[in-house]
Design a binder for these strands. Structure first.
Lengths: 344, 344
DNA sequence: CTGTTAGCGCTTTCAT
DNA sequence: ATGAAAGCGCTAACAG
């Protein structure tokens, strides 16, 4: 970087004090109009831009927030970061972005880096590996406002979470109401509360509907990837394990399941109904278009950013954490049968 | 933020000078072993972390790079940022992320914010609106290394671009070789060099194949969105405009075209072959799976970050810009007919 | 209306 | 082996 234009340099060129330049630039009325004009003119000429570092150091405030997300390439997270960025941009905050790559070690490193940069606050989504939360608690102890998104965890902080239980409940209920007799659930990693919640919603819907479930209906689907689900479902079919509905922990798994069902010459939704989770971009375009539970990632991002900014600006030293549950929405497409509404 | 632990505080607690503490912490051999141990012990106890702001100010180096991307939610860009982040993380750099939302005004604002933060370098992809490049040139004049990704532009800077011309050429050639007689091209915004290149590749392939093209084969498809392409193609079919191949400027448009073709009861690929561009996640899962030109977003991100870091660390004041063209790859799926190789 | 001074947290030269 | 002092760029209290 070439030599920067600084207040000092402006002052020297104009033969006045730096403090005068500083004041003139912010239109302080104590400074004479003429001086203000002279200063601003030169500043524009030399393309002066204030050094945010010096300002931050001075103010002990960086106007920067940190964001830690597991994987940027996942559609859901990309919508979250997009939401965050839109809000912070409008409030003239900047975002330092870190991706933990689902690694605890990297997440810890991210926390440290963000603290060192003295970000004014942090929005984070824990990695799949995270079972210890000391690095987040350390942040809080250092007084940095922290808001979690999406994946639940035991830290006593504000959170924007998705109504996983309800989303799963709604999806399962729909399958049941539309006539499914035996539904399997492709479950996600059990250390993620989200996986548990979706499983619990699945179970609860059965219970309320008066249908017993057995453990064979819950099938672990490791990382919830397409190929895993494909293998699992193909296996079930080969073993003549019968089912007429699938509720998958996410859309990728649902797509794998769909392919497996179709490759066994079973029809979707006539023979098997399938519901995914997340409403990935692809869902509407596969064949048949996938019924799924929509999670509002963008909204989660904006809400998280708004909440964080609010907490950052709060005068209180102690802030009661807020937990905001964002409702999900069942998007009906053609991988499920049509439900004849009988209202009452 | 609560009171920070600073060098000064450590020094006070230990009854020594801050400069000694500073040195001890970095294992300066001029400091006695005992002092070093004492200092480090207290630093660990109090959870001391250096203030990156102060360091940056002192060193005139922030170990931070800025990234400006049009839209984070697009799969391609999310892979780019992911690639960038992985490289910078491994080199202990941080990323300040901005999304321009395809707005020139916002892009200008992003440039300013990044400069104010005194980032050590910038990676940017111009917005669709950008036709004036002064804000980028200003950055260069201030001596900030700049690397562009993906969308070509006239600024004299290093660039990692995708071989759009060749990608389009390959795709078109495949259609031709597999028997298409009349192919239409759904073209993108013409102010984007990428759109022009893809169109030129389309034309060149015809030319080399000895097939004349007329302007009716090039159909403007505004923003290249799914619904636009759907309307356009449906219209063409209704007007009995004949074609047996479609090369779309991107996958979204290709999907729209596919739906339109199918809804007119034409078969893909038997009646109409379709090729998209970008290899979005959805491509493999729609029906039929879409043949597309794969762009290596992640690799583009890593390459851009590596090049930027290299330029940042160069001692030379003037650096000859490098233009790296990343080859594309035609991913054959089922929206195109199978080509019988005749390796003459 | 403007200048002087101190200090944000850190490193580094120069003394001792 | 350690300390004092200056300075990175900026602001704000204080002085005049």
């Amino acid at each position: 970087m070439k030599s920067q234009v600084t207040l000092k340099e402006l002052a020297r060129k104009l033969g006045i004090a730096t403090s005068t330049v500083s004041r003139a630039l912010k239109d302080n009325t104590e400074i004479s109009i003429e001086t203000r004009i002279r200063v601003k003119k030169l500043a524009t000429e030399l393309n002066y831009e204030p050094n945010a570092l010096a300002l931050s150091l001075r103010r002990s405030k960086t106007y920067t927030i940190g964001v830690i997300l597991p994987e940027l390439v996942h559609f859901f997270f990309s919508t979250v970061i997009s939401g965050i960025e839109d809000v912070t941009f409008s409030k003239e905050y900047n975002v330092i972005l870190c991706q933990s790559n689902e690694s605890l070690e990297r997440e810890i490193s991210n926390c440290k880096a963000l603290f060192n940069h003295r970000v004014d606050g942090i929005i984070a989504c824990i990695s799949k590996e995270t079972t210890n939360y000391n690095h987040f608690i350390a942040l809080q102890e250092k007084g940095i406002p922290l808001v979690f998104v999406d994946r639940e965890n035991p830290v006593d902080a504000s959170k924007i979470i998705s109504g996983d239980f309800n989303g799963a409940y709604d999806a399962t209920q729909y399958l049941l109401k539309s006539g499914c007799k035996r539904i399997i659930h492709l479950a996600g990693p059990q250390n993620l509360v989200l996986s548990q919640e979706r499983m619990n919603g699945f179970l609860k819907a059965h219970q309320e509907y008066g249908i017993a479930t057995d453990e064979n209906q819950i099938v672990r689907c490791g990382g919830g990837e397409t190929h895993e689900a494909f293998e699992i479902v193909r296996n079930l079919i080969e073993k003549k394990y019968l089912f007429d509905g699938i509720f998958a922990v996410n859309d990728m798994a649902a797509v794998g399941a769909l392919k497996a069902v179709q490759s066994a010459k079973l029809r979707v939704p006539e023979d098997v109904s399938i519901i995914g989770y997340s409403d990935w971009a692809l869902c509407a375009f596969i064949s048949p278009p996938l019924t799924t539970v929509q999670q509002k990632g963008y909204e989660m991002g904006t809400k998280a950013a708004e909440l964080l900014l609010k907490e950052m600006h709060s005068k209180d030293t102690f802030i009661e954490p807020s937990i905001i549950v964002l409702p999900t929405k069942l998007i009906l497409r053609e991988s499920t049968r049509i439900l004849i509404q009988n209202d009452h």
